[in-house]
Structures are given as structure tokens and as C-alpha cells.
């Protein structure tokens, strides 16, 4: 009976240890391992390495407190959120924003005044809407500052309903 004329390729053994070979190949390696002490040792060395590595990691990370880490992360998130809010506040209320915003507001007020005057003074519709009936106004519709000329009589009166000013005069050469 021929025994162990060959050894499993180390790379194949590595794949076998990781369960990354096809089932028929795995079966062949398994059979070989039962018969070949050298390959079995190589296989055990892989397992020993694996357990040693995992022990090494767990030993060195055992001092790390996961809860503390979790708290730190949450603290940082809260802090970042606060900073973000603070930044937004600072940006909104900084001179860089406040001054241009104020200027913009002033410009808008000016524009509003322009448009108000333009719309309400130069078009028929709004003027009519804004026109206050003179009757509702106690002041006369017109104040006569001065008059002069070749006149015989000058009278200043008011209409009975809307109290519009009437300026009545007679030319000098006219018969009154």
C-alpha cells in the first residue's frame, strides 16, 4: 500500500482551513490528512496560529471599554450638532450677514416706496381707489395763496356737497 507520496500544497491547505475548497476536493484533503502526519501538523499549525492571533487581539483589546467608546461617540455627535447650531446662529447674526441683510431690507423698503408711488400715482385705477372724497375732508380742496390782475371782484367759495373750492372772478371790462 502506497502511503503519502505527496503532501497537500500549503496554499491549498490554507484554503481548506478556511472552508474555501470544493466539496470533492475537501473530501480528498480530509482523507489525506488522516493518513499524513506532516500535513496534519501543518493543518494544526494553521489552527494554532488562528487561535493565537485571536487570543492576541482579545487580550490587547480587553482594556477597551466599549460603553465608554459609545458615550464618547454620542458626546461628539451632540457636540458637533451644537457646534453646527452655533455656527448657523453665528452666521445668521454675524456682521457679514447682518449688514448685507439690513442693506437689502433698506433697498427693499426703498423699492417698495418707489413702486408704491409709481403704481398709486401714475395709473388710473389705484388713484381712483385712493382718492378721498373731498366731502370727507374738512380742509378745502384748494387754498388760494394770492391773486392779482385786472379784476373787479374775486370770490372764494365752496361747493355744498364735496366742499370743492370755487374761485370766482370778473374781468375788469366786463359788466357784472
Amino acid at each position: 500500500m502506497q502511503k503519502n507520496l505527496y503532501h497537500i500544497e500549503p496554499i491549498m491547505l490554507s484554503q481548506f482551513a478556511d472552508g474555501e475548497v470544493k466539496p470533492d476536493e475537501a473530501e480528498r484533503i480530509r482523507q489525506h490528512l488522516s493518513d499524513c502526519p506532516d500535513c496534519r501538523k501543518a493543518m494544526n499549525d494553521n489552527l494554532f496560529l488562528s487561535s493565537h492571533f485571536n487570543n492576541y487581539i482579545s487580550l490587547n483589546t480587553s482594556a477597551i471599554n466599549p460603553s465608554a467608546l459609545e458615550t464618547k461617540v454620542l458626546e461628539k455627535i451632540h457636540y458637533k450638532n451644537e457646534i453646527l447650531l452655533d455656527k448657523i446662529k453665528r452666521i445668521l447674526f454675524s456682521d457679514k450677514i447682518l449688514i448685507p441683510t439690513s442693506a437689502m431690507a433698506s433697498v427693499l423698503v426703498i423699492l417698495f416706496c418707489f413702486s408704491y408711488q409709481f403704481i398709486y400715482r401714475n395709473s388710473d385705477g389705484p388713484v381712483n381707489r385712493l382718492t378721498v372724497p373731498t366731502s370727507a375732508v374738512s380742509a378745502p380742496s384748494a387754498i388760494v395763496d394770492s391773486f392779482s390782475g385786472e379784476t373787479t371782484t374775486v370770490m372764494i367759495m365752496e361747493t355744498p356737497h364735496s366742499h370743492e373750492t370755487i374761485l370766482w372772478y370778473n374781468e375788469k371790462n366786463e359788466k357784472v
Binding site: 388713484v127 385712493l130 382718492t131 378721498v132 373731498t134 375732508v137 380742509a139 380742496s141 384748494a142 387754498i143 388760494v144 395763496d145 394770492s146 391773486f147 392779482s148 390782475g149 385786472e150 379784476t151 371782484t153 361747493t159 370743492e164 373750492t165 370755487i166 374761485l167 370766482w168 372772478y169 370778473n170 374781468e171 375788469k172 366786463e174 359788466k175
Partner: peptide, 22 residues
């Protein structure tokens, strides 16, 4: 030639009635 002159202060959107010449 000017035979009548006057200076008035007229309300915005107001009216004045001037009359008399024959």
C-alpha cells in the same frame, strides 16, 4: 396779456372750480 393770476395749493387728487369770465 395776463388779466388774472393766482397761486393756489391744490390737494393731491383734488379739484378747484375757477369761473367768472363772460
Amino acid at each position: 396779456s395776463s388779466n388774472f393770476q393766482t397761486v393756489i395749493q391744490l390737494l393731491n387728487n383734488g379739484r378747484i372750480i375757477v369761473g367768472g369770465p363772460q
